[in-house]
Amino acid sequence: MTDALTLTPNLAKPDDSYALLLAAHEGLTKAQSDALNARLILLLANHIGDSQVLKQALTEAKRGLRDD
């Protein structure tokens, strides 16, 4: 088994990181924001590298979005 997805607090300054995400989208249209999110996901997915971690993250992200 490879590394598990980190689900405990891991950001040193959570409010700063959250503000960074919001600030990045300021002034963008919906289409630009969508593009930014997609690029960010791809950059971070590559940084993580481990497809098992990515799968776990997708499972957690999807929780509650569908009945199945």
């Binding site: 969508d34 593009a35 997609a38 690029r39 996901i41 791809l42 950059l43």
Partner: peptide, 9 residues
């Protein structure tokens, strides 16, 4: 959106 993001990157 993902496809275009890949191409841009």
């Amino acid at each position: 959106i993902f496809r275009d993001a890949v191409l841009d990157l």
